[in-house]
């Protein structure tokens, strides 16, 4: 059996694959948003000096870093509806279960990224903000967070790409994302090479687009004026930001 380009191209432009790819990206987006929000509060908790904030955050990160994502998804989809009748309703879809499940797991990792980003902001920054009379919340929002985001961006991009791939785990809870789509096709036709190759192309395209998006966002956080950028180039940023 030779590689049949016609089957490959037919799948490449099929609506099944496109839908699958869209679902994979959507799960990744939603779980990343959820993970960032939860992760931010966990990071605040872990950097806090108060035990009643530190302990629950510590527990969360410890728990969800230990449990395999696959197990969390199975619990979300199979065990929770048994325990909570409300989750047996139609609105509790595989998409929702996958997004929340992966988001909960990812939050443990995002919290570590955000925590180290917050800690890496120079202490003098908070000091300067407080000296101006800013409240602790304003110091966080206007001074520390914008600088922490810049540091957290590259590892967050990594996590995002990871989530696109982790979304394939949702095949176990019957979400027809990209890999499930390929697998279903294979089960009918046995054209492994063609169907998997089409999936490869989709993953490559998705991750390439995300990488371009990431470098675009990172440039937004370059902190140079446009005139200086055209004159001196990006090396100004690399050598001088962070010194003061």
């Amino acid at each position: 059996m030779l590689f049949d380009p016609d089957i490959f191209f037919a799948q490449l432009v099929s609506t099944d694959y496109m839908k699958g790819a869209a679902l994979s990206v959507a799960v990744a987006v939603f779980s990343l948003i959820l993970a960032t929000v939860i992760g931010f509060f966990m990071a605040i908790g872990r950097t806090s000096r108060r035990t009643y904030l530190q302990a629950p955050a510590h527990f969360y990160v410890w728990f969800f870093r230990a449990i395999p994502a696959l197990l969390v998804l199975l619990i979300m989809w199979n065990a929770l509806p048994q325990l909570i009748p409300a989750l047996r309703a139609d609105w509790f879809s595989p998409f929702l279960a996958a997004s929340v499940g992966l988001g909960l797991v990812e939050a443990a990792f995002m919290s570590e990224i955000i925590r180290s980003a917050l800690l890496s902001v120079d202490e003098g920054q908070g000091l300067a903000g407080r000296a101006l009379g800013m409240s602790p919340a304003k110091v966080m929002l206007k001074v520390v967070l914008p600088q922490a985001i810049r540091i957290a961006l590259p590892p967050t991009g990594n996590e995002f790409i990871g989530l696109v791939k982790y979304s394939s785990l949702a095949s176990v809870i019957s979400l027809r994302e990209l890999l499930t789509t390929a697998q279903v096709g294979v089960n009918i036709t046995f054209r492994y090479a063609e169907y998997y190759a089409a999936a490869i192309i989709y993953y490559l395209v998705i991750v390439s687009v995300l990488s371009i998006l990431q470098s675009f966002v990172e440039k937004k956080f370059a902190w140079t004026s446009k005139t200086a950028k055209s004159k001196k180039g990006m090396d100004v940023v690399n050598t001088k930001v962070g010194i003061s």
Partner: peptide, 20 residues
Amino acid sequence: LAAQRQEVGMVFQRFNLFPH
């Protein structure tokens, strides 16, 4: 404290400007 600090201006050795 935040309200009272507005009355006192502080200049730091290492400037501590907000780089962003």
